[in-house]
Design a protein around this nucleic acid. Structure first.
Length: 174
DNA sequence: TAAGTGCGTCGTT
DNA sequence: AACGACGCACTTA
């Protein structure tokens, strides 16, 4: 899946989009060998994924998404991932807040683990979760990506609201 | 303030 | 039984 930020790799199951990988600088994802001719269903989903991802990378609210197949996760993880999807574009949350939202205020650290296990980063916005001290926290795709995504969302919001509203973005970068 | 240490917590492996 | 994309209290510079 080509984007201005490089070639992402999307994976589909019978039920929908089930994986999204950041561009890997090294091995250029299967080196051009993609599936012969995806079935029409998959191609429709892929078109949606493509537009949504490109918008998301620009910091804009994502367009309509294809069905997401998150069935690989445990019950706990699925609850966390759903909570992530409820964080609006341009806003941020914290691992503690997410833990509270899913009704397990003590499972803060486990929430971090679930974020790290998110199979569809960017579209399932785990990058919007910061540490409670308002620092960046971690990111499986690399902290630079997390910074970039947040900065672009903040910029898009600022642009849209003439910058007169307070942006909630991370104070510090580590 | 900033940075480091220790411990509680709890889902995963 | 061990290990974190954490949080919080508490020390030290």
């Amino acid at each position: 899946l080509p984007t201005p930020d490089g070639e992402f790799l999307a994976g589909y199951s019978r039920n929908g989009l089930c994986a999204l990988d950041f561009p890997s600088a090294e091995k250029r994802h299967r080196n051009g060998q993609r599936a012969p001719e995806p079935p029409p269903q998959i191609r429709r989903w892929h078109a949606l994924t493509s537009e949504a991802l490109i918008r998301a990378l620009a910091g804009q609210k994502s367009s309509r998404l294809p069905p997401l197949d998150l069935s690989t996760g445990t019950e706990f993880q699925k609850r966390v991932w759903q909570a992530l999807r409820d964080i609006a574009c341009g806003r941020t949350s914290s691992y503690l807040q997410v833990a509270q939202v899913i009704g397990q205020p003590g499972a803060v650290r486990a929430v971090g683990g679930a974020c790290g296990a998110n199979p569809i980063p960017v579209l399932v916005p785990c990058h919007r979760v910061l540490a409670a001290n308002r620092k960046l926290g971690g990111f499986s795709g690399g902290l630079d990506w997390k910074r970039r995504l947040l900065a672009r969302e903040a910029a898009a919001i600022a642009d849209h609201s003439s910058g007169r509203f307070s942006l909630d973005r991370p104070e510090k970068t580590r």
